[in-house]
Nucleic acid binder design. Structure first.
Lengths: 211, 211
DNA sequence: TAGATTGTTAATCGATTAACAATC
DNA sequence: TAGATTGTTAATCGATTAACAATC
């Protein structure tokens, strides 16, 4: 089945890395096959979900035996696109921005922050975790020239829309927005809102609901 | 309608703060009422969604006129619980943990980080953004004594399960987990997984889907 | 009144869960 | 063979979208 007609589903994308990490550990323990039941038990979810997800990414198992672990790992790796490298730029190099630049998890998943931008002139020219920081007025040209398609916004909310406009002008197609504010962008540009506090409220509400 | 039988829905919780921020700006421009259509147009969503959400939080509008802005703001404030103060502790004060401790957005939404813990002895006793950092072996007692119910985990993945176990022992009921790994906890404890890279992959997949 | 907007009931859609036949 | 597990089809559930009567 060609990639293009596979369905795209956020819950699936969230679960696959969890399967992957468990499969890696199972493989390192010498196992070669595993049942959906076993994966599900370890992750505390329903086995049917695991079977459905395997089906969605095109992995096939064998009745009575389960799934071949290396195959399943490869299918997840392929579906998640961890083999391709995607380059990112980030605008806003305060404490959150710096933490993102310093985060090691990007590389393993096929992402690389190639430049940072900040409106504080004293930051221009410095390196954070090996990434060069530029003044913000260099952003549009640099992004155009390097054909970067994903931009991270980690600036105060009042500055976020202006940065988003610049990113759109620079040809960015996807914005990962850490500012708690709605951005106006053309329909061709996708915004992934990362409102940390909202996640925390969802946790809090979930706790009250549970009680 | 009492709080307890209102439905709990994550998408709703995500949208309400966006309404709130727009309502605040409309109010500061001297408006006193607003239609769901106007809110929806500004946020690029369907007006029906806005009306449904208003209904869910118990706000009532008037045909032809719309919703009273102060009332709607109050209803959101109440539903989100921004008036109550919830105390948090954080374990792991590296760059991500420090960025969270330094983040200003908690206060406005009724959250406060009251202590940080780290296994690096050189950090014991220091202040980050006014928050005291303690050695990790003080965590269980302090959390028990202060009856803190929410814990943040911002440690490397290989240490996350151990910290989660300690938190459960300390009586924590909700864990906000920034480590990319599944945690095993009793059913009475809720884990909100905050896998940053997964959000980025969802953005990336959305872009490919769009194209 | 006329018409814009709410509130409500029904339809759609997607994801999860259930049931069960196929298969090794 | 017997039985565990897959693969598939159907049912459920919740959220979104649509339709429309009520109302100011």
């Amino acid at each position: 089945m060609p990639q293009s007609i596979r369905t795209f589903s956020a819950p699936l994308i969230r679960r696959l890395p969890e399967y992957h990490s468990y499969l890696e550990s199972a493989l390192s323990q010498g196992l070669t096959t595993i049942s959906s039941t076993a994966i599900a038990a370890h992750l505390n979810i329903d086995p049917i979900v695991v079977r459905k997800d395997c089906e969605a990414i095109g992995a096939v198992g064998r009745p009575r035996i389960g799934f071949d672990i290396p195959n399943l790992i490869a299918a997840i790796y392929e579906y998640m696109g961890w083999g391709n490298l995607d380059e990112l730029v980030i605008v806003g190099c305060g404490s959150l921005g710096s933490a993102l630049i310093g985060y090691n998890g990007f590389k393993k998943r096929g992402f690389k922050i190639i430049a940072g931008f900040d409106n504080d002139p004293s930051k221009a020219g410095i390196l954070i975790n090996g990434v060069s920081i530029f003044p913000i007025n260099k952003m549009v040209n640099l992004v155009k020239r390097l054909h970067v398609e994903i931009g991270i916004i980690a600036v105060p909310p009042q500055a976020a829309q202006e940065i988003a406009d610049m990113m759109v002008e620079a040809g960015i197609k996807g914005i990962w927005n850490f500012s708690p504010c709605a951005l106006k962008v053309p329909k061709t540009v996708i915004v992934q809102q990362e409102d940390l506090i909202t996640s925390l409220v969802i946790l809090q509400k979930g706790m009250k609901h549970e009680r």
